[in-house]
Design a protein around this nucleic acid. Structure first.
Lengths: 333, 333
DNA sequence: AATTTTTCTGTAAACGATTACAACCCAAAT
DNA sequence: ATTTGGGTTGTAATCGTTTACAGAAAAATT
């Protein structure tokens, strides 16, 4: 690896001059600059980011920590993050925890040691203690799609309760009164909130909340499948089902098809997220849409406002717009 | 940020001793070790990975560069990569190029400057010049799912030509003779190979190759949709279609449904990859399966063999097993 | 008791960049 | 002729670690 010293020697100048040239500082003679630049290119010299980082205390890297890279929701968020990180000439380390809290903590520690300058995270952990690890870092953190237990972080999310409300309202207007929940784990914030949204909306319409219509599973395809299986076993099964996210909805759809029932003829279904696949599948999924790319982009924008040292005393909370996208999995009873 | 010096001062020892303690070297008194460790914990000291990296010339990070994070194929590969990187206590920087070569090159340069210790890449670029940038790095590189133009890199992939052969054979056995291709861009290696696989297999069965049955589009949902649209406009449309990957197949399915045709009754279809959706969708997609997680894991394993300095003179080529998974989108004509 | 070996600890030199500071040169102003 | 001041360059300190080397103390060997 050629170092700045090698370049300096070859060019017959001091390392300081080379440094000035590659950092485009003024106060270096135009001819000399061109000369040094030529040698830099000839030697294929690239400054060592590590050494530079040690001196300048900046690594130009941030990190995005997500629970499930197999859920297309997150890759889309990641694209949003990347897009603004690009503008700032930062690279982003993407960490996938597969929802194991332990791994999340390990990541956070490593990231801290590697001196990333900020973290965007959708936490798998939810307890105060788990969050404390984040709080002890002294770098900016922004939470996506998660309640902040500790009030120290910026946060960007949609209003889950309202979002679910849209879904239940739609069911209600279509005449459904027996509405099931294919719920995600209530240990994570969005699972809990969407559960609350379901309960509150059902109650708001004067429909009695029935325990047997409420299920809870893992936030993935199989979780949705299992939950739906349970609902289908009921003597008096629901005519409509809200699933806590789209991949659970897709799992539910599989379960429904498996029993020979038709969608939406026999059962209506609504998901949450509006992942790309929901408009590619058949029948196309009615779902509560949230702006995934923007969520990533805005979170990153907020992060950089702190990374670049702006004084923002209070944690901010940005609520993004959601909307119900009516497609082909819902129909009048 | 507390440094090793702070810890040393507080403990009344030299920095060397603290360094020895946190690196678990022998030759430090057991009592002293415990004492220092206590202070380390009290102060919440974490060594600076940057400074350490500068001295030791190791960053403990590798990178995975992929063209399309929205294609579930790659997240699954990424999980495989992460899983073995975890074992080695490495973190992985995931870079998504969205198939723009320019961005790929920028990433590679930044990664090089950040002194990542190895790169796993599914290149978007294909020309010799584009590959040269990789060759000039002096860190290990392993290619996934791509031909190596330059013979300098390890590579792990499936035999695309054989894979496509399985699909075409299956169509043939089911009585199909008019088989269309929803092809991916031939500028990328897997697009070209799958095209070749199609041509060769068709010829092998003595079926004339017809230009009008061959389409080429972007390697995504919309690409598949557009190609299929074109095939459907033919006076004499195909009875079976092979799509270059599953998301293209899914796009093709959308296009077929849109015209009111039935799958597999009117048209049979086979994809490639076996992403998770292909068995969640309806009807379930027949597809050529390749081991995604393993591909990532094995590539990473090969990478680490070089990263850890083993002498492996020749580039290696690992061909993984593929198989045809017959589901519900193919039927006898 | 003298010597050798082993254990333990500290001093100081790296690693590869950035940057404060000083010094020099030269043109312009006094 | 002297001073001023901006442009240009170099010297050396610094960032936070690891580690070669040295030296002291303790243990083992002769």
């Amino acid at each position: 690896m050629t170092t700045i010293k090698d370049v300096a020697e070859k060019a017959g100048v001091s390392v300081a001059t080379v440094s000035r040239v590659i950092n485009n500082e003024k106060y270096v003679n135009e001819d000399l600059r061109r000369y040094v630049l030529k040698i830099v290119n000839d030697m294929g010299y690239q400054p060592d980011g590590i050494a530079r980082g040690l001196r300048t205390k900046s690594t130009n890297v941030i990190s995005l920590v997500i629970p499930d890279i197999n859920n297309p929701f997150y890759p889309e968020v990641a694209r949003g993050v990347q897009s603004v990180a690009d503008e700032y000439e930062y690279v982003v380390i993407l960490c996938n925890t597969d929802r194991v809290v332990q791994r999340e903590q390990k990541f956070v520690n490593i990231l801290n040691q590697q001196r990333v300058e900020g973290i965007i995270i959708n936490p798998s952990g939810s307890t105060r203690r788990e969050m404390n690890i984040l709080a002890r870092l002294n770098i900016p953190v922004v939470l996506i799609s998660s309640q902040n237990i500790l009030p120290n972080f910026d946060i960007v999310m949609v209003d889950n309760i309202q979002g679910v409300g849209l879904a239940i309202d739609h069911f209600y207007e279509l005449g459904h009164r027996r509405i099931g929940l294919v719920g995600g784990s209530r240990e994570v914030s969005s699972g809990e909130q969407r559960y609350q949204g379901y309960i509150q909306s059902i109650a708001r319409h004067g429909i009695p909340v029935e325990e047997e219509l409420i299920t809870e599973g893992k936030f993935d395809h199989n979780g949705g499948y299992e939950c739906m299986k349970r609902l289908l076993k009921l003597k008096n099964r629901p005519t409509a089902v809200f699933a806590a996210n789209d991949i659970m909805a897709i799992g539910a759809v599989s379960a429904i098809y498996e029993t020979g029932l038709k969608i939406p003829d026999d059962i209506s279904i609504i998901g949450f997220d509006d992942i790309a696949y929901s408009r590619m599948m058949y029948p196309k999924l009615t779902t509560v849409s949230q702006p995934k790319f923007e969520m990533g982009a805005i979170a990153t924008q907020m992060l950089f406002e702190r990374v670049t040292g702006q004084e923002i005393p209070n944690p901010r909370r940005k609520i993004l717009d959601h909307s119900l996208v009516i497609r082909d999995t819902t129909q009048r009873i």
